[in-house]
Nucleic acid binder design. Structure first.
Lengths: 215, 215
DNA sequence: ACCTGAACACCGTTCAAGT
DNA sequence: ACCTGAACACCGTTCAAGT
């Protein structure tokens, strides 16, 4: 009876810490995440976090896992292997668009993406084998698509808002000496990312098809 | 006569600072580069650097330019557009292998790569146009290859030495539920990067060829 | 058991002062 | 003109002390 009312404060836990870290990154940017700020966000001193995560690197490992957990949706099986790979690639890029500030974390330890997306990956490999690809070619095909989309998105998300800050004299020299490159530079910018992604993905799938049993 | 012997000390300059910064990154890693350490390396207090570079971000801009300047070699024209694109891609990846620690800087402001590699880029575009590709398709083809190789290398260089630190229980679950993905995981590692790169590049070129006038 | 305060060894950057 | 010293507002992390 004389004890105080139940405290509002939810106890710290690794999960609460990691979820809050991702939210801070989403809202303020990766560079703004510090142990001290994260502690403040949780109503706690920074030093308390160390009871639940080994350090900042371990915290970022947790954020990466959380991110990749979002990748896997109950992927409906596609009509064929090409459909499966297109779907996997597009869901990957959508993850980047949902968390552009955090996406850079996925550059390191990219192999964990296969565990996170294991159901989609298994379906993709099965579809490739069913179409007559041998094990090695099927493996390379899937790894190539994953590498492409991860690399593509990393650069896209890192580029955010820095289109082409070239000095005027550089642009003039370019227009004089390499006019086609100058034309290409003008086409750069966020507006062309969707088309570029689909172009590259289509080229890759076409090229992979040519390496299969029928190619 | 009474003046001291000419000082050994070379005066600071933006170029000396940037060149030294790249050396520090190459030798000790990007995370180890600080204004204070760089000053020490140059025999100067950190604060003196601010007379020559606006800040750490401007310094890293300079390092990126220095890096990209290495990309351009007097590229002998290839036999055809596919040859030109293959050569550009391989020189890009070689740059990554030469400076794995610094390569991550190229994720941001990736468009500057076209200026740095402008001679190769112009040659590639010219070869595509000569083969009958229209301007838009030629532009997308070149941009796709550049994006692919930059993204591929970024992930490769960021991965350095972290093959697949999966826990045993994760591996067991994977072998049970997604055996093909488990097989794929075993194939990961630095030893397969060359083959993966060539596979992806070949697929991409094949797919691009199929989008050209003869496809 | 869980959280805190103080401390350590660092950061990037500014600015008045020295030479 | 060029460099420095001291300072400011931060970092990640450790550890003895508090509750």
């Amino acid at each position: 009876m004389s004890s105080p009312p139940p405290v509002e404060r939810i106890p710290l836990s690794r999960e609460r810490i990691v979820v809050t870290a991702l939210r801070v990154i989403d809202e303020r940017g990766l560079a703004q995440l510090s142990m001290r700020r994260l502690g403040a966000e949780l109503g706690v001193e920074a030093m308390s976090l160390y009871k639940h995560v080994a350090g900042k690197d371990a915290l970022l490992d947790g954020v990466r896992e959380l991110l990749l957990a979002e990748l896997e949706t109950p992927a409906a099986p596609g009509r064929d292997w090409a459909d499966d790979l297109l779907s996997l690639a597009r869901r990957y890029r959508a993850l980047g668009r949902a968390h552009p500030e955090a996406f850079g974390l996925l550059a390191r330890g990219a192999d964990r993406a296969y565990v996170a997306g294991r159901e989609s990956a298994e379906a993709g490999l099965a579809a490739l084998r069913a179409a007559g690809f041998d094990e090695e070619t099927a493996t390379y095909a899937l790894r190539t698509v994953v590498r492409f989309v991860l690399g593509f998105s990393l650069i896209e998300m890192a580029g955010e808002g820095a289109p082409a800050p070239l000095a005027q004299d550089e642009l003039d020299a370019l227009a004089r000496d390499q006019p086609m490159v100058a034309g290409l530079m003008r086409s750069l910018g966020p507006g062309s990312e969707d088309a570029l992604f689909e172009f590259g993905l289509r080229a890759l799938i076409t090229g992979i098809a040519a390496m299969g049993p029928g190619g």
